[in-house]
Design a protein around this nucleic acid. Sequence first.
DNA 1: TTGAATGCAAAACCTTTGCAAGCTC
DNA 2: GAGCTTGCAAAGGTTTTGCATTCAA
Lengths: 144, 144
Amino acid sequence: MAIKSREEEKFKALLKTRRLKYTVDRKAIYREVMRLSGHFNADSLYERFKNQGSRIGRDTVYRTLPLLLESGVIQKSAGLSKREFFERTSAKGHHDHLVCVRCGKIIEFKCPEIETFQAKVFSEYLFQPICHDHRLFGICRSCR
Amino acid sequence: MAIKSREEEKFKALLKTRRLKYTVDRKAIYREVMRLSGHFNADSLYERFKNQGSRIGRDTVYRTLPLLLESGVIQKSAGLSKREFFERTSAKGHHDHLVCVRCGKIIEFKCPEIETFQAKVFSEYLFQPICHDHRLFGICRSCR
DNA sequence: TTGAATGCAAAACCTTTGCAAGCTC
DNA sequence: GAGCTTGCAAAGGTTTTGCATTCAA
């Protein structure tokens, strides 16, 4: 619960910085995202609203996800399709993905050392970090 | 020239593994890619052929790039659009990208330590490495 | 009150695909 | 000759956009 609120503050803070509003729809999208533990995309999230009888539009979802991404509440996930996948950052903590290009299997990995060096790169170039996309592609053992 | 041939061998080797053919078109695409030092995408490469009066089709380019990618001759590059960008691996050696989400500026960085840990992840999960996509998104100093 | 957000529908976009004809090996 | 490759054209599928209306601060 503590984490949940802190996440919400991050989202609100981003909106404030951008002089954007914390509307009913954005709140609903934020809340729905917090209920998800797996990966999702704009469309699957929209479908959830539709199934619940909510009138939140697909476009609103498409427009809100980049804001959640930038605020750090969600992060990019992985998949073989061109589609963009996301997942809640706090669900399992931050991690990256290893993708088998043959069977599409996706493995989550955590590598704190990589995170450390990433942070160094950001600071070396005087960038304020927002997020990153790190996917390793290869062929898994069973596909070889 | 030595490097050039070695690259070509890598490409040929991949084709052989997949029982694919080293056709005239694939050779032409390989050669054209070797002439490029900056980043490109399927379409811009196709345009180059068109401007040269070559009859190589857009589709062939689209179908060949994944093969060059898998053989390691090219790697993914970065951009803000959904479009896929590539660049020759040997042009500047392997590197990754730092992208400013405000102005779109792209900075290339090299971080050998990250590469080392990536290799560890691949071997830990028994994956045969093919390539990776590593982009750091943030806000550059002048945009803040 | 003012600027932002939303829904609708349409557009835009890049990429992929099926198929018949032509090449490679 | 068998199977892969290519060009054509069309489809595909996701994401974006313009605009009028509604809403938040």
